[in-house]
Amino acid sequence: MNFEQIVFYLLAAVSAASAVLMILQRNPVNSALFLILNFFCLGGLYLTLHAQFIAMVQVLVYAGAIMVLFLFVIMLLSLGDERRLKESLGWKAYTAIALTAGLLSELFYIFVPSTQTFTSQSANAAQMGTVEYIGTVLFTKFLFPFEVTSLLLLAAIVGAVILAKKKIQ
Protein backbone atom coordinates (compact mmCIF):
# COMPACT_ATOMS: atom_id res chain seq x y z
CA MET A 1 0.00 0.00 0.00
CA ASN A 2 1.45 3.34 -0.99
CA PHE A 3 1.18 6.67 0.83
CA GLU A 4 -1.82 7.89 -1.20
CA GLN A 5 -3.89 4.81 -0.36
CA ILE A 6 -3.00 4.99 3.34
CA VAL A 7 -4.11 8.65 3.48
CA PHE A 8 -7.35 7.87 1.64
CA TYR A 9 -8.30 4.89 3.80
CA LEU A 10 -7.48 6.77 7.02
CA LEU A 11 -9.53 9.85 6.07
CA ALA A 12 -12.40 7.74 4.72
CA ALA A 13 -12.55 5.63 7.89
CA VAL A 14 -12.49 8.68 10.19
CA SER A 15 -15.12 10.56 8.16
CA ALA A 16 -17.47 7.55 8.00
CA ALA A 17 -17.03 6.84 11.72
CA SER A 18 -17.59 10.48 12.71
CA ALA A 19 -20.75 10.63 10.56
CA VAL A 20 -22.16 7.57 12.35
CA LEU A 21 -21.13 8.86 15.78
CA MET A 22 -22.75 12.22 14.98
CA ILE A 23 -26.25 10.75 14.71
CA LEU A 24 -25.73 8.49 17.74
CA GLN A 25 -24.88 11.28 20.20
CA ARG A 26 -27.54 12.38 22.70
CA ASN A 27 -25.96 15.77 23.30
CA PRO A 28 -26.23 18.12 20.27
CA VAL A 29 -22.89 19.79 21.15
CA ASN A 30 -21.11 16.43 20.73
CA SER A 31 -22.97 15.90 17.44
CA ALA A 32 -21.73 19.27 16.20
CA LEU A 33 -18.14 18.45 17.21
CA PHE A 34 -18.24 15.12 15.35
CA LEU A 35 -19.63 16.93 12.30
CA ILE A 36 -16.68 19.35 12.45
CA LEU A 37 -14.30 16.34 12.50
CA ASN A 38 -16.17 14.96 9.49
CA PHE A 39 -15.77 18.26 7.61
CA PHE A 40 -12.02 18.33 8.33
CA CYS A 41 -11.65 14.80 6.93
CA LEU A 42 -13.61 15.80 3.84
CA GLY A 43 -11.20 18.73 3.41
CA GLY A 44 -8.35 16.22 3.48
CA LEU A 45 -10.12 14.02 0.91
CA TYR A 46 -10.50 17.08 -1.36
CA LEU A 47 -6.71 17.50 -1.12
CA THR A 48 -6.22 13.89 -2.27
CA LEU A 49 -8.42 14.81 -5.26
CA HIS A 50 -6.16 17.84 -6.04
CA ALA A 51 -8.89 20.39 -5.21
CA GLN A 52 -6.75 22.64 -2.97
CA PHE A 53 -8.94 25.75 -3.15
CA ILE A 54 -12.16 23.89 -2.36
CA ALA A 55 -10.37 22.08 0.50
CA MET A 56 -9.39 25.41 2.08
CA VAL A 57 -12.91 26.82 1.58
CA GLN A 58 -14.32 23.65 3.16
CA VAL A 59 -12.25 24.13 6.32
CA LEU A 60 -12.82 27.90 6.51
CA VAL A 61 -16.53 28.12 5.60
CA TYR A 62 -17.93 24.77 6.74
CA ALA A 63 -15.77 23.70 9.68
CA GLY A 64 -15.24 27.35 10.64
CA ALA A 65 -18.17 29.65 9.97
CA ILE A 66 -21.21 27.37 9.58
CA MET A 67 -20.39 25.05 12.48
CA VAL A 68 -19.61 27.99 14.79
CA LEU A 69 -23.11 29.28 13.94
CA PHE A 70 -24.58 25.87 14.84
CA LEU A 71 -22.69 25.69 18.14
CA PHE A 72 -23.69 29.28 18.91
CA VAL A 73 -27.40 28.48 18.41
CA ILE A 74 -27.16 25.24 20.45
CA MET A 75 -25.64 27.17 23.33
CA LEU A 76 -28.04 30.11 22.90
CA LEU A 77 -31.03 27.81 23.26
CA SER A 78 -29.20 25.96 26.11
CA LEU A 79 -30.49 22.60 24.94
CA GLY A 80 -27.66 20.81 26.71
CA ASP A 81 -28.89 17.32 27.35
CA GLU A 82 -31.46 15.89 25.02
CA ARG A 83 -32.72 13.20 27.39
CA ARG A 84 -35.98 15.06 27.99
CA LEU A 85 -36.71 14.72 24.28
CA LYS A 86 -38.44 11.46 23.60
CA GLU A 87 -36.30 9.64 21.02
CA SER A 88 -37.88 6.20 21.11
CA LEU A 89 -40.04 5.94 18.02
CA GLY A 90 -40.86 2.25 17.77
CA TRP A 91 -42.03 1.13 14.36
CA LYS A 92 -41.21 4.50 12.74
CA ALA A 93 -37.51 4.11 13.55
CA TYR A 94 -37.43 0.54 12.23
CA THR A 95 -39.15 1.64 9.02
CA ALA A 96 -36.60 4.46 8.65
CA ILE A 97 -33.69 2.04 9.19
CA ALA A 98 -35.17 -0.41 6.66
CA LEU A 99 -35.67 2.34 4.04
CA THR A 100 -32.13 3.66 4.56
CA ALA A 101 -30.68 0.15 4.31
CA GLY A 102 -32.58 -0.27 1.02
CA LEU A 103 -31.20 3.01 -0.33
CA LEU A 104 -27.65 2.10 0.76
CA SER A 105 -27.82 -1.34 -0.86
CA GLU A 106 -29.14 0.18 -4.09
CA LEU A 107 -26.29 2.72 -4.19
CA PHE A 108 -23.71 0.02 -3.38
CA TYR A 109 -25.18 -2.19 -6.10
CA ILE A 110 -24.47 0.60 -8.59
CA PHE A 111 -21.03 1.72 -7.34
CA VAL A 112 -19.26 -1.41 -6.07
CA PRO A 113 -18.89 -3.44 -9.33
CA SER A 114 -17.65 -0.51 -11.46
CA THR A 115 -13.92 -0.69 -10.56
CA GLN A 116 -12.72 -1.04 -14.17
CA THR A 117 -13.58 2.49 -15.35
CA PHE A 118 -11.85 5.68 -14.06
CA THR A 119 -9.03 3.99 -12.17
CA SER A 120 -6.81 7.10 -12.09
CA GLN A 121 -7.28 10.86 -11.93
CA SER A 122 -7.23 13.01 -15.03
CA ALA A 123 -3.85 14.36 -16.21
CA ASN A 124 -4.84 18.01 -15.74
CA ALA A 125 -6.44 17.40 -12.30
CA ALA A 126 -3.35 18.74 -10.50
CA GLN A 127 -3.45 22.22 -12.07
CA MET A 128 -7.27 22.38 -12.04
CA GLY A 129 -7.67 22.91 -8.31
CA THR A 130 -5.42 25.98 -7.97
CA VAL A 131 -6.83 29.37 -7.01
CA GLU A 132 -5.66 30.79 -10.35
CA TYR A 133 -7.56 28.24 -12.43
CA ILE A 134 -10.70 28.35 -10.26
CA GLY A 135 -10.70 32.15 -10.34
CA THR A 136 -10.31 32.24 -14.12
CA VAL A 137 -13.22 29.87 -14.67
CA LEU A 138 -15.35 31.57 -12.01
CA PHE A 139 -14.97 35.06 -13.48
CA THR A 140 -15.38 34.06 -17.13
CA LYS A 141 -17.66 31.07 -17.67
CA PHE A 142 -19.54 31.31 -14.35
CA LEU A 143 -19.69 35.09 -13.94
CA PHE A 144 -23.50 35.34 -13.95
CA PRO A 145 -24.11 32.60 -11.31
CA PHE A 146 -21.36 34.23 -9.22
CA GLU A 147 -23.17 37.59 -9.31
CA VAL A 148 -26.53 35.94 -8.54
CA THR A 149 -24.86 34.37 -5.48
CA SER A 150 -24.32 37.85 -3.99
CA LEU A 151 -28.06 38.53 -4.32
CA LEU A 152 -28.81 35.20 -2.62
CA LEU A 153 -26.50 36.04 0.29
CA LEU A 154 -28.13 39.49 0.68
CA ALA A 155 -31.58 37.86 0.79
CA ALA A 156 -30.31 35.35 3.38
CA ILE A 157 -28.90 38.13 5.60
CA VAL A 158 -32.18 40.08 5.50
CA GLY A 159 -34.22 36.92 6.07
CA ALA A 160 -32.14 35.76 9.03
CA VAL A 161 -32.30 39.17 10.73
CA ILE A 162 -36.08 39.47 10.21
CA LEU A 163 -36.77 35.93 11.44
CA ALA A 164 -34.61 36.09 14.53
CA LYS A 165 -35.91 39.52 15.58
CA LYS A 166 -38.01 39.60 18.70
CA LYS A 167 -41.09 41.29 17.33
CA ILE A 168 -42.07 42.10 13.76
CA GLN A 169 -43.94 45.37 13.40
Partner: peptide, 26 residues
Amino acid sequence: MIPLNFYLILSAFMFCVGVLGVLVRR
Protein backbone atom coordinates in the same frame (compact mmCIF):
# COMPACT_ATOMS: atom_id res chain seq x y z
CA MET B 1 -4.15 4.81 -7.62
CA ILE B 2 -7.56 4.87 -5.96
CA PRO B 3 -10.44 4.17 -8.35
CA LEU B 4 -13.31 6.65 -8.61
CA ASN B 5 -15.89 4.32 -7.14
CA PHE B 6 -14.13 4.26 -3.72
CA TYR B 7 -14.98 7.94 -3.36
CA LEU B 8 -18.53 7.30 -4.59
CA ILE B 9 -19.02 4.47 -2.08
CA LEU B 10 -17.85 6.71 0.78
CA SER B 11 -20.14 9.47 -0.48
CA ALA B 12 -23.12 7.07 -0.71
CA PHE B 13 -22.47 5.79 2.81
CA MET B 14 -22.31 9.30 4.28
CA PHE B 15 -25.45 10.33 2.40
CA CYS B 16 -27.34 7.34 3.85
CA VAL B 17 -26.13 8.18 7.36
CA GLY B 18 -27.53 11.68 6.81
CA VAL B 19 -30.87 10.29 5.56
CA LEU B 20 -31.09 8.01 8.60
CA GLY B 21 -30.35 10.92 10.92
CA VAL B 22 -33.09 13.07 9.36
CA LEU B 23 -35.61 10.23 9.67
CA VAL B 24 -34.75 9.02 13.17
CA ARG B 25 -33.60 12.04 15.20
CA ARG B 26 -36.19 14.34 16.84
